[in-house]
Amino acid sequence: MMIQTMAWGSLEVDESQKYQFNKGMPGFEQETEFVLIPFADEPFSYLQSLKNKDLAFLLADPFQFYPNYEFELPEEEANELQIDGNVVIRCVLTLKDQVEQSSINLLAPLVMNPDQHMGKQIVLHKSPYQTRHPLWSQSIDVEGSE
């Protein structure tokens, strides 16, 4: 299927990359259809709106940056997404001019069911996570300890 994007213009994507977000994304409730566009061999991907070529979210696999990241998916959310087994977790990134100041939103992960092609951004209540965790903090710590 051919889609329009701001970053790449026309882009051919597979139907299996399409996800339905029944309630949209917070702040973009009218946007309910997206495609997940992964970067080859990278922990990053784009979530591109199918209705609005100017709306895309840069996502990352949170476990690549925070290996101990964990949360309990409420049963109500799991049922809504019809999750039986396969699940994809991604978090929204905020890029800054100075890349080392970029952050990842661990408080509101995107939970996606790749079997049913459904997704939802879940706000974790009673969580130690924040909307702006440093993205590169672990690599900086590792470099600083050498």
Rank of each mutant, 00 (worst) to 15 (best):
M1E: 11
M2R: 13
I3N: 05
I3D: 04
Q4N: 11
T5V: 05
M6S: 13
M6K: 13
G9R: 03
G9Q: 06
G9K: 03
L11E: 01
E12I: 13
E15L: 11
Q17C: 14
Q17P: 12
Y19W: 11
N22A: 15
N22H: 13
K23D: 13
G24S: 10
G24D: 06
G24I: 08
M25A: 13
P26A: 08
G27V: 04
E29W: 05
T32Y: 01
T32N: 11
E33T: 08
F34I: 08
L36W: 05
L36D: 02
I37F: 07
P38Y: 00
F39T: 03
D41L: 12
E42I: 07
F44R: 01
F44A: 06
S45D: 03
Y46A: 05
L47Q: 00
Q48P: 07
Q48D: 05
S49Q: 01
S49K: 01
L50M: 14
L50F: 08
K51S: 12
K51Y: 07
N52F: 07
N52M: 08
K53L: 04
D54A: 14
D54C: 09
A56V: 04
A60Q: 02
A60N: 02
A60T: 06
P62Y: 02
P62S: 07
P62R: 00
F63G: 07
F63K: 08
Y66R: 05
P67W: 05
Y69N: 01
Y69G: 06
Y69T: 05
F71S: 01
F71I: 08
E72H: 11
L73P: 01
E75F: 05
E76S: 13
E77A: 14
E77C: 09
A78Y: 00
E80A: 13
Q82I: 06
Q82V: 09
I83P: 07
I83Y: 02
D84Y: 02
G85S: 10
N86G: 12
V87Q: 06
V88H: 04
I89K: 00
R90K: 12
R90Y: 04
C91H: 01
V92L: 10
T94W: 05
L95H: 01
Q101R: 13
S102H: 03
S103T: 15
I104F: 03
I104N: 00
I104R: 00
N105D: 07
L106E: 01
L106P: 00
A108T: 02
A108W: 03
L110Q: 01
V111F: 01
M112F: 10
N113H: 06
P114A: 09
P114S: 09
D115K: 08
H117C: 13
H117V: 12
H117R: 09
H117F: 10
G119I: 04
K120D: 04
K120W: 04
K120Y: 06
Q121V: 07
Q121I: 03
Q121C: 06
Q121Y: 03
I122G: 03
V123K: 02
L124H: 03
H125Q: 14
H125L: 15
K126E: 14
K126Q: 14
S127A: 10
P128S: 07
P128V: 07
Q130L: 12
Q130M: 11
Q130A: 12
R132H: 15
R132N: 15
P134S: 13
P134D: 09
P134L: 12
P134V: 10
S137Q: 15
S137C: 11
Q138K: 15
I140E: 13
V142M: 15
E143Q: 15
G144L: 14
G144T: 11
S145Q: 14
S145G: 10
S145T: 13
E146W: 14
E146L: 15
E146F: 15
E146G: 15
